[in-house]
Amino acid sequence: MTETPPAAGSSGVTDLLGVLAYAELTAFWRLAEDAARLAPSLTDRAVLSDLAATEYGHFRLVRDRLTEMGADPEEAMAPFVAALDDWHAKTKPGDWLEALVKAYVGTGIAQDFYREAARHVDARTSGLVDEVLADEGRSEFAVDRVRGALSQDPKRTGRLALWARRMVGEALSQGQRVAAARPDLAALLVGPAGEDLAEISRMFARLTEAHGKRMSALGLTPGP
Rank of each mutant, 00 (worst) to 15 (best):
A99I: 05
G169I: 07
A71K: 00
D130Q: 13
E74N: 05
R177L: 11
S41V: 10
A181N: 02
H88C: 15
E170I: 12
P6D: 09
I200P: 01
S49G: 14
A35W: 10
T208L: 05
A76G: 05
A53N: 12
L97W: 01
I200S: 05
A198V: 13
A110P: 06
D50C: 05
L20C: 09
E68A: 08
P154I: 11
E170A: 15
T91K: 05
V168Q: 10
A52W: 04
V190G: 02
L100A: 00
Y56M: 04
R145N: 03
R124L: 06
D130W: 03
L42S: 13
G212E: 11
L100Y: 03
P73K: 02
A99F: 05
G148D: 00
R63K: 01
E136A: 09
H88R: 10
G70F: 02
V62N: 09
A179V: 01
G94C: 08
S139T: 05
G94V: 01
L84D: 04
H58E: 04
Q111F: 15
F80I: 00
V62C: 05
D86I: 01
R145G: 01
K155N: 14
R147A: 08
R115W: 04
G158T: 12
L38A: 06
L16C: 09
E24D: 00
V19R: 08
K155Q: 15
V47Y: 04
V19N: 02
T125V: 00
G175L: 10
L31E: 08
L207I: 12
A103H: 10
I109K: 13
M1C: 07
A210R: 08
D122A: 11
V81K: 09
E199Q: 11
D153A: 12
A32R: 12
G223P: 09
V143K: 02
H88A: 15
R166F: 12
P73N: 04
A187Q: 08
T26H: 01
A23V: 06
K90Y: 04
A118V: 08
D15P: 00
R30T: 14
Y104V: 09
L128A: 01
A23R: 08
L97A: 07
V19S: 12
M203H: 10
L31K: 09
D15L: 01
V121Y: 00
A7V: 13
G191F: 06
T208D: 06
D112K: 02
L48N: 06
M77Q: 00
P93A: 12
R214A: 14
T43Y: 10
Y114W: 04
E170S: 12
G137E: 07
L31T: 02
A123S: 11
T67Y: 01
L162M: 14
P183Q: 07
L207N: 13
A21V: 04
Y114A: 02
S139I: 07
T91H: 07
S173Y: 06
E195C: 08
S151D: 15
L48H: 04
T125C: 10
V62I: 05
D196G: 09
E209D: 14
V132L: 11
A179Q: 10
E55S: 12
L128F: 00
A36F: 12
A8G: 15
R145S: 04
R119H: 09
S11T: 12
G219S: 09
V105A: 02
R30Q: 06
Y22W: 13
R202E: 05
E195R: 15
L188K: 01
L25R: 10
R165G: 11
M77H: 06
L220V: 01
P93I: 03
D130N: 08
L17N: 03
T2A: 15
